[in-house]
Simulated assay, not measured.
Amino acid sequence: MRKKSVFYLSCLLLTLFVSSKQLSAQIKGSLYAVNKPGLNWAKVGTLTLPQGGAEAHIQFYGGAGYNAELAQMGYTEMTIRTSNGASVVNGFGFSAFASRTGTGSFITAIRIMPNQAGVAATTYDIYIYMVGYVGMSIYQITTVDGQFTKAEVIATPPAGAFEVPFEYKTQNDTYLANTLFASYANGNVGIGTVNPQTKLAVNGEISAKKVKVTTAAASWPDYVFSKDYKLPSIPEMESYILQHRHLAEIPSASEVAANGQDLGDINKRLLQKIEELSLYIIQLDKKNKELETRLSKMEAKEK
C-alpha cells in the first residue's frame, strides 16, 4: 500500500508540474491600438529563447476597423524556433514562419531582430506591420522554454531584421468544401473531383478571361512558309479526306472523344492547316490570273 501511495503521489506531482509549466507559458496582452489611418510598424515586445530547438508561438486576433464586418476581421499566427546551438541559416540562429486566415488581414509583415548574430542570440524583438484603425485587438504568446516582455509601441525594425515568410502548409491531403482537393502524395489538384490524375483536373466548366499556353518557337507552324516545305497537292488532300473523313494530322472525332484535346497542340495543327490553305489560295489566285491573261489574249486575237 505504501509503495502504491508513493507512486500515485509521484504521478500527481508530475501532473501538477507539467500543468503549471503549461499555464505559466500562457501570456496574454492587448495589441497596441493604432488610432489613425495609414500603415505603422509596431514593436510587440521582446522574446527570450535559449538555443537548442526552443519554440514560441504567437497568435494575433484582431482586424482593421471598429465595425463587425468580416472584411475587418483577421487572424495571424507565427512560430519561431531556435537553432541547435551551432548551425545558422542566412546568418540567423533561428527560423520563423507565419500564416494568415480570415477575410481581413491587419498584419501584413512581421520582422524579428535578435540581440546578437548567429547562435549567440538570446533575445528577439518582435515587430509587426499593421494597417490603420486596428482597434482593440489581442495577442497570445505560448512558450515553455522562453519568456516574453511586452513593449506595445510604434517602432520601426532596424536594418538587417529577419523577414518572417508567410506560409500555409498542410502535410496531408487537403479537402475544401468537398469541391477542391489537393493531393499530398503528388501535388495534383482536383476541382469537383477527389481523384485528379493530372496537375489540375476540373470536373465542370471553366471561365477565364485569358488562357496562356506556352510552346517552343521551333514547333510553331511558321515552317509551312519555308521554301523546302512540301505542300500536299489538292488531289492528295482530297484523297486523304475521302479515305479518312478528316484532315491529315488532325485527330478524328473518335480520338478526341477518347483522349480529349491538347489545346496547345490542336492550335498548332489548326494554324498549320490555315497556313496551308493560305498557300492553296495563293496558288489558285496565280492560276486564275494566268487564265485571265490567256483569255484576254485569245479575245484580242478574235477581234
Results as ranks from 00 to 15, higher is better:
G102Y: 00
E69P: 07
T82M: 14
G74H: 11
A98M: 12
V89G: 02
G63E: 08
A42G: 05
A33N: 14
Q59F: 09
N67V: 15
P37N: 11
I58N: 00
K21L: 15
G104Y: 15
F97M: 10
Q22A: 13
A96Q: 02
Y61L: 10
A71C: 12
A117G: 04
L31Y: 02
Q51S: 01
G74Y: 10
Q51H: 02
L31R: 12
S30A: 14
Q59D: 13
F60Y: 13
W41H: 10
N84V: 11
E77R: 11
Q59I: 09
G91F: 06
Q26L: 12
I27H: 11
M113I: 07
T103A: 14
F92H: 04
T46Q: 04
I112L: 06
A56W: 05
T79Y: 10
T46I: 07
M113T: 09
A56R: 09
L47N: 02
I58K: 00
P37D: 10
Q51F: 02
Q72P: 12
P50F: 03
G65P: 15
W41A: 13
G45P: 01
K43A: 10
F94Y: 06
Y75C: 11
K36R: 14
K36A: 11
V44C: 03
A33P: 14
S105K: 11
E69M: 13
I27W: 12
Y75I: 13
Y32S: 08
T103P: 10
L23Q: 15
A117Q: 11
G102A: 07
R100S: 07
T46R: 08
R81Q: 14
F94R: 01
S95L: 03
L47V: 01
T103W: 08
Q22H: 14
G65K: 14
R81I: 08
V34K: 06
G74M: 09
G53T: 04
S30Q: 09
L47G: 00
G93P: 00
A117W: 05
S30D: 07
S105R: 07
Y75F: 13
F60G: 03
T46N: 02
V89R: 10
V34F: 02
A109E: 09
G65C: 04
A68S: 15
E77F: 05
S105I: 12
A54L: 02
L31N: 08
K43Q: 13
L49I: 00
G93D: 01
N115C: 02
P37K: 12
F60S: 01
K28T: 11
L31E: 04
L47I: 01
T103V: 09
A56P: 06
M78S: 06
N115S: 05
E69R: 14
I58G: 00
I58T: 03
A109L: 04
L49C: 03
A56T: 04
N90F: 04
R81A: 03
T48D: 11
N40E: 15
S95I: 06
T48F: 06
V44E: 02
V34L: 13
I110F: 01
N84S: 12
L49R: 00
